[in-house]
Design a protein around this nucleic acid. Structure first.
Lengths: 217, 217
DNA sequence: TGTACATCAGTGAACGCGCGTTCACTGATGTAC
DNA sequence: TGTACATCAGTGAACGCGCGTTCACTGATGTAC
């Protein structure tokens, strides 16, 4: 634990808020949001339970902050996939579809490799606002939902998606990858062998893309 | 409560197992699996907490039984949609696609109208086996997953789906509707106005169908 | 038909659990003069 | 440069909560003879 288990030298911690969020990430990594227990987080930060209330009004507020941090990490994974799209292959049109695929694959890679964080990320007491809130954005300044929307907008720009089909396309793509992620991480598909699971994950992305841009690609 | 809150006349309850499952359904209806508390279920059945252990080895086992019951109800809702497919419209081919659509719509109608039961139904400690287990089947003897698979098999039979595309098609369709259901019932889409939510639900089914049978329909 | 007895389905009291949260407080920090 | 004092960030002990589960038990049931 970074600044955690050893006793502090100073009475004041200095960065307790962020330290608690960090502890929340550690706690939730293996078993999700329910594993975030306030007392344990303060223990990891080397501080009394009561001290947490100086920074968060309640446990729920802490969980929300951890959720935002998890979303930001997810955004970074997705961005890595976007950046890896071959800029020389195909025309701009083909590339815009590749980017959509990259978003889907990044989403699933994150969810399947970090199921605990995926769980917190969407263990949410708020609404769509949170999915586009600043503190849920990755290093590139975009949240996962925004990355998806950017990709679809680009497809409209390159003619890969009719403008009239744009509304709702984001929610459809999101539903497809999110559904598989949930079924495969805590649902009945949890026991699929990894290899088959990853194969199906790719297929889900493929079919979602073809549902949205079926005619043209 | 059916045979619940008033005191029993007999020392033996007679049907305590089923009564506890019934109580579990009542408890989970509004807030899902977490609302199933063993002590409360026994209270509703007019019985000591300890009595539950005569019928279930643990709370988890009770929750599993409630999950199966919820899945069975879902299957019945889906079946209603299947049975409502116009048998005179289009050929057998078109009808097989209509049935797939009906399965998707039934799935979402259940999830959106009974979010609590939808939550229990997939709050599962077991794997795919449970999704095809007998006690999770509706009156017609099929579980939701089996209804979906039946629909896709029929599409192969009528040539609406190439046999080579059949593997994984079930998991894709499932992912799409399940994802939307999760996002809209406990996720960030929870606050969508009902009317818009239902519109998007239809769109999700539509695009999922066209992802799977894109070229032909 | 009546009785003995194994079996089944409940009782009732208790336990430990560890949590989130509240109380009145004290030690450290930094700014005004 | 030194001191007073408001403010900030922690302490430490305690509370209530209601749960799932265990204990040794007793009342009801049904079958064998």
């Amino acid at each position: 634990v970074a600044d955690g288990s050893r006793p502090r030298e100073t009475y004041h911690h200095g960065q307790l808020g962020p330290a608690l969020v960090e502890a929340g990430l550690v706690l939730s990594r293996t078993s999700g949001a329910r594993a975030i227990v306030l007392r344990e987080a303060t223990r990891m930060a080397g501080v009394t339970p009561r001290a947490a209330y100086r920074h968060f009004p309640s446990r729920e507020a802490l969980v929300d902050a951890v959720a935002a941090a998890a979303l930001a990490r997810m955004a970074d994974v997705i961005q890595r996939h976007i950046d890896a799209v071959d800029p020389t292959a195909g025309g701009a049109a083909g590339r815009s579809v590749d980017v959509l695929r990259a978003v889907g694959r990044g989403y699933l890679e994150f969810a399947l490799s970090e199921p605990g964080w995926f769980d917190v990320a969407f263990f949410v007491r708020e609404d769509l606002a949170q999915a586009t809130a600043g503190d849920a954005a990755g290093a590139a300044g975009r949240t996962p939902l925004q990355q998806l929307q950017d990709a679809l907008d680009a497809m409209v720009a390159t003619g890969q998606l009719a403008a009239k089909d744009r509304p709702g396309a984001d929610l459809f793509c999101w539903s497809a990858v999110h559904g598989f992620a949930v079924l495969a991480t805590r649902g009945p598909l949890r026991t699929l062998p990894t290899q088959e699971r990853d194969r199906v994950a790719d297929l889900v992305v493929e079919l979602a893309v073809s549902g949205v841009a079926g005619q043209s690609s």
